[in-house]
Design a protein around this nucleic acid. Sequence first.
DNA 1: CCCTGCTGGTAGCATGTTGCAACCAGCTTG
DNA 2: CAAGCTGGTTGCAACATGCTACCAGCAGGG
Lengths: 150, 150
Amino acid sequence: MVTRTRFDDSDCPVARSVDAIGDWWSLLIVRDAFDGSRRFGEFQRSLGVAKNILTARLRSLVAGDVLESVPASDGSAYREYVLTAKGRELFPVIVALRQWGEANFFAPGEPHSQLVDRRRGERLRALEVRSADGRLLDPDDTTVHKVSAE
Amino acid sequence: MVTRTRFDDSDCPVARSVDAIGDWWSLLIVRDAFDGSRRFGEFQRSLGVAKNILTARLRSLVAGDVLESVPASDGSAYREYVLTAKGRELFPVIVALRQWGEANFFAPGEPHSQLVDRRRGERLRALEVRSADGRLLDPDDTTVHKVSAE
DNA sequence: CCCTGCTGGTAGCATGTTGCAACCAGCTTG
DNA sequence: CAAGCTGGTTGCAACATGCTACCAGCAGGG
């Protein structure tokens, strides 16, 4: 078999997530969905992706219950793609990638799109990994357990 | 051109991040690196990836300054791959993906690897997106600004 | 030093996936 | 009712992925 390796049976949640999002177009589609895009054409113009690819990605995101296809809100006969509850839970993932990109791929002052708090127009606080009792954690402060059953 | 589309000149930090990490394997390599893997063979056994693919991914991660290649710590003549500072900053991304996967792809009680606080052995707190002044934010509480120069 | 195995790759080939462009059917608006 | 939008599908060419075989340098025992 030469198909792309799948990770949907891995016991690592990271692997299953990566498998579900499928590819990077999918993540950018989700980003645009958070940003308000709903229609096929909106995604297509925003991303510049080929339409057949977009079709395939939207289908797989719908199949994976990240997006759902609903009747258009403007009353026309077309359809719209909106995030499901599961899809909205990807918000921290997108924010984390955004903050990593901002910190590492832009020169100081270089123009870029920025996610801000709507109420005050300010940048967001950097994401923090914390323990159950609230201590700030570095990678070294954590370890991976195999949980066989609980 | 039929090469995979690149996003390294996009003005969206999410797109540049996606471009830098490149593909699924890369993210799993980074996950393993956080988990303590250092040697080519460790990554290869852990991921089950073909060696030519692993070679290419390691090279691109090194080129992207996510990993660096250093002399082996055991004194042998081989090399090891360790996360750079930039690579360690991916920690929230991995944690976010892990939490999303845990919440959405495992039946209750289904065995899976789990990231825990080393000191207390407890699961981590869920990541929270917060405003600069500390309010908890939903996706709807945020909006994207184009910043032309600042 | 010599043989054997381990480590970390490279080379070649088959297949899958991506990207582009062309095409098309159903809306919908003047 | 005709022209253009919307949301696709199809075909083809190029590239990426996966598998297997191969191979060079190190390591360790005898």
